[in-house]
Each structure stands twice: as C-alpha cells, then as structure tokens.
C-alpha cells in the first residue's frame, strides 16, 4: 500500500524548494522562496514548528542534515550566493557559519559521510564547487574547485565511505583506507567524479551521455558489492544509471533507466539503495526498482490529483 499518512502545513509564504527528514525521521527541515528555512518536529504524526531560520536574502534551494554524531546541524544554500550552517545549542537554532565564497546562486549542498568528519560540498551557478571542512574551534577549512562545470553546477552527491568491494576484500577489524569522492552534475551536460588526493581535489572521471543540462545526480549507498552506482537526470528527459565494477573506479557504464517526455529534475536513492525515486516535469514522482533479473521497472507512481487524498494499492514488485 502506498498512502498519505501525514500532511504538514509549513505555512511557507512562497514555493517550497526542498524538504529533508533528519536521520531518524523525527524532524523535518523545509526551505522556500520566502527566504526562510523551517524545522518541524514530526514525531508521532505531529507537526510542531521548532525553528524559523532567517538569514538568507533570496530563495533557499536546498537543506541538508549533518550526521547526528556532530550534534544537530543543518546546512542551507540560496540564490543569495550564501551557504549557511545552522546549529542547535541549548534548544535554540543559530548560525554556526556563513560561507560567502560563491559568486552566484548556490544550488546544492551535501554533507559527506561521517567518517570524514563534518565536510560539506556546495555546487554553484558560478561553476565552482566548494568543500567546507570543520576543523574544530569554529574554524572551517575551505577548498574550492573553480570551473568544475562551465555555466554552472546543479548538483553534488557524496560517495559512501567505502572502498568498493571493501566488505569483501578487507580483513575484518581493519579500517579500510577511505578515499573521499563525490559526483557532480552541471550545465555542461556532464557528470563528473571528483577525488581527493594528497589533500587536493582532482577530477577523476567525466561521464558523458546526457545531451542537455544535468539537473541532479545521486550516488547510491553501498550494499557491500564491489560495484558503485550513480543515477543522473537531465533536461534531456533521460535518467541514466551508471555502474562501475572496476576496483580502480575507471570504467563506468551507463544504462538508460527511462526517457521521459519532459525535463527530469530530481533523482534520489532510498536508504538501502534498492529503490530510485525520480521526479520530472510530468508532475509525478515515480519509484523504480531493479528486479531480480537486473531490469529496472517502475513500481509506483505518486501523482498530483485533485481534491481529496485517495489511496490506491500499489503493485509491490514486478519481476518482469
């Protein structure tokens, strides 16, 4: 069954651009064109406004929760070129850090795996990607990849902190040597992979398949196989699934998930990486699952309806 179990009235005065549940699904952060970021306590189906964060001077595009081991920390990015990191201290939310290093709208923020500490990747319309690392004592170390994507970077997404195949090859108890990697998508129609080497960020791979701006990218969680998986979507209406079985990470193959009739704006993996959600210009969110024979099938479809909420049983699985 797929059904609407709760509806939160955010009272945003303008368009909502992003909503993110915290790690445990107990708090919801939202952001809007009304320049605010709001945090709601949604435990047990409730909706209590916990914070109304004001600080941005333009539409706020995205919010991202940091891992709870760092405390309650939220990052937001905006058309006003700023990235703000908010922190809850003694029950109240305040600015922890404000980053103003971009020359144009900041479109995407994404926290790295907690194994690397507090590290935030930010993609901007100025074509650059910034990496903000917390070094303690209110200090943030800034690294900037200039001209990462010509005309602009639309999305960033971190790779899980595992060496692909590590769960198979690694002797137990020994901490593998993690490499920091993330993927980005931009207005140069490219999907790019970045890797940190000796403290410097380097372009690792350039994946070409889209024929128009890449709107979103998502690196799938690792499920222990020596395979890395990335989903990308574009204005060209296509969603690609990129996989790499090669331990060195050099050979990526693309598989077309689906060609939509309209722009595809957003892709995102479920926690265990077994379902990919896609949303596009067709006003729908579709859920895709890899069946047991390796084919991708649409298993559910969340569409805009009129009037009352209707509940429709979904097909749970499609093996064909």
């Amino acid at each position: 069954m797929v059904s609407v179990i709760n509806t939160v009235d955010t009272s945003h005065e303008d368009m909502i651009h992003d909503a993110q549940m915290d790690y445990y699904g107990t708090r919801l952060a939202t952001c809007s064109s009304d320049r605010t970021v709001k945090i709601f306590d949604v435990r047990n189906g409730g909706q209590i406004l916990v914070a109304d964060l004001r600080g941005h001077e333009g539409p706020v595009w995205q919010v991202a929760w940091a891992h709870p081991m760092f405390g309650n920390i939220l990052a937001s990015c905006s058309y006003d070129r700023k990235v703000i990191i908010w922190k809850e201290e003694n029950g109240s939310w305040d600015k922890m850090y404000e980053y103003t290093g971009h020359e144009s709208s900041v479109n995407s923020v994404c926290w790295g795996p907690y194994d690397f500490g507090l590290i935030l990747a930010c993609g901007s319309s100025d074509g650059a990607i910034s990496l903000l690392t917390f070094t303690g004592d209110q200090q943030w170390d800034i690294k900037k990849i200039s001209n990462a994507h010509t005309i602009g970077c639309n999305a960033v997404s971190w790779a899980p902190a595992v060496v692909p195949g590590s769960l198979i090859d690694q002797p137990s108890g020994q901490k593998p040597n993690y490499v920091k990697r993330f993927v980005s998508g931009g207005c140069d129609n490219l999907v790019k992979l970045w890797k940190e080497e000796d403290g410097q960020w380097k372009e690792d791979q350039k994946l070409e398949a889209h024929s128009d701006w890449v709107r979103d990218v998502g690196w799938a969680p690792s499920i222990g196989l020596p395979t890395s998986t990335i989903a990308s979507c574009s204005q060209d209406g296509r969603v690609f699934i990129w996989t790499c079985d090669d331990p060195a990470g050099n050979t990526w193959t693309a598989k077309l998930l689906h060609k939509f009739n309209d722009v595809v704006w957003h892709v995102s993996w479920s926690i265990t990486g077994n379902i990919l959600a896609v949303s596009g210009g067709d006003n729908k969110v579709t859920l895709w699952k890899e069946s047991m024979d390796g084919q991708w099938a649409c298993i559910s479809d969340v569409s805009k309806g009129q009037g009352a909420v209707s509940t429709i049983t979904d097909t749970q699985q499609n093996e064909q």
Binding site: V2, V4, T286, S300, V302, S310, I312
Partner: peptide, 9 residues
Amino acid sequence: EPAVTNIPA
C-alpha cells in the same frame, strides 16, 4: 501498470 497515488495539489 504501476499503481498511482494521488496527492492533492
């Protein structure tokens, strides 16, 4: 076909 869930909008 996959089932459709409608969301008020």
